[in-house]
Write a protein that binds this DNA or RNA. Structure first.
Lengths: 258, 258
DNA sequence: CTAAAAATGTTGCAAGCGCAATATTTATCC
DNA sequence: GGATAAATATTGCGCTTGCAACATTTTTAG
């Protein structure tokens, strides 16, 4: 990476703080290079997630969620598709419970764009923030001890409060899915999920295929308690067998609506 | 303005929450209208400052109104000093209740750096986030309806939950301070503040001098209920008179500790 | 110093976009 | 219900962009 190139790309990023969008021609003129060079710069910066391309230019990268690791970013498209598929399943809902986790945040973002006049209960900071974009959605945040890395409330208060409500759907993420059921890395979170399930008519689990065939400390659901799994790849082996045995509806996000 | 047009433009704005940029062709296909119609929509939305055009599409508008970040920047030095002064007054505290607002966030930051092994109840996301830096502080977030612009929970659930707790200090911000007492621009917030006061042994109000001699809809405290006002300038006239009459301890942040 | 690698420039063309003028449909109001 | 206004569609043309292939310059490394 040449000095000139690094400096130019840094300058482009800086420019984006002053303008909402930049055009390739302008950048080329400004830096005295060809448009093709700028185009290559933008492509590289996009690759690194530093900005987003538009036709003829670039814009700032969308603000990423706190602690978005590389591994998480890998599955961002899968999650977006899972989110779309999920929203299609809950069009009739009035009251929802949403768990924490990055996949549920994607679902929340989809809900905020496509749904209206509903009530959502959540213990996740991220979910609440995303939903609040839509003023017709009533967001009720659950109490509890604030768990910083998860950005969510957990503990006895959370669970006790949940017991005062009922919902149409519980939409939950997972750290692992195995024949044993769904589990989360955080025991405190799984206890909240478990309660959400009990207080909801139906339980939907959203998780990409990277969660298949792994188990984590907090097992919060066995498959017979789950109504639907929304994911991006066909499960196989023992996991698939369990889903079928327990009549869990499987919804693949790359399939069109039935 | 036709119904269809309004809905379409609203949908376009909503879509921008998912994607950093939109392209006219895609929008046209999505809404089953011609590209020219979308172009007109985008031009109108741009006119209204709701988004920014790009060649072939649109991106989100950059925040132009003085929002949270701007508000925080205002009087930041004064607030930092107020925060330091406040923490000096609550060294003995075990349990605190913290309201929302930018001044209380500063106080929270100070608490996170200087105090340890305490429990804090708050309805503000900002306060919770800042406090969570310190692992020895137990942060309990209150439930309620999420109020996006304030970044806090409000409503009946918040108040009911608060009634199950007691604290040593309630530390509250204010939009206005007058001889009538302390008031907030948001009625829902002031109801929460009011309850926090009732559930705490002592009430501390933190506010810079720009709040002097103004009143807002949600009056949550008269001065005889307040134990201490921490601010950056000496109040005058009627306000000072009231503070004295009600034996409110006045603590100026530019004074050294007594 | 020199060769390989990286970065940048140039060119041509297909596809995409903006814009204005005009036509057509849809909504609104009396 | 019909006149009028608003909203949308259509069309044509000139300009802009994306892209790929290839040439040239600059940088890097042995």
């Amino acid at each position: 990476m040449s000095r000139a190139k690094t400096a130019r790309q840094a300058k482009i990023m800086a420019e984006l703080n002053n303008a909402p969008s930049l055009r390739i021609v302008d950048l080329a003129r400004l830096h005295n290079v060809s448009t093709e060079t700028i185009r290559r710069d933008l492509d590289e910066l996009t690759q690194g997630g530093h900005l987003n391309r538009t036709y003829g230019g670039a814009v700032r990268a969308i603000a990423t969620e706190p602690s978005l690791t590389e591994r998480h970013r890998l599955y961002i498209n899968e999650r977006e598709r899972i989110a779309r598929a999920t929203v299609q399943l809950i069009e009739d809902a009035q009251i929802l419970m949403l768990g924490s986790g990055s996949t549920t945040v994607h679902v929340a973002r989809r809900i905020a764009t496509e749904m209206k006049d509903i009530t959502v209960l959540t213990h996740s900071f991220g979910v609440a923030t995303v939903l609040s974009i839509n003023p017709t959605i009533r967001v009720i945040v659950l109490p509890g001890e604030y768990h910083a890395t998860e950005g969510a409330m957990v503990g006895a208060h959370t669970i006790a409060f949940l017991n005062g409500f009922s919902a149409d759907y519980a939409i939950l993420g997972a750290s692992g899915l195995s024949d044993d059921g769904a589990s989360d890395a955080l025991i405190d979170c799984s206890a909240v999920y478990s309660t959400m399930m009990q207080r909801s008519s139906k339980t939907l689990i959203v998780a990409d295929h990277s969660k298949f065939n792994s188990t984590f400390p907090g097992r919060y659901a066995s498959w017979h308690q789950v109504d639907c799994l929304i994911t991006d790849q066909q499960p196989t082996g023992k996991l698939l067998q369990c889903l079928n045995q327990n009549k869990v509806t499987l919804r693949l996000s790359n399939e069109p609506v039935a």
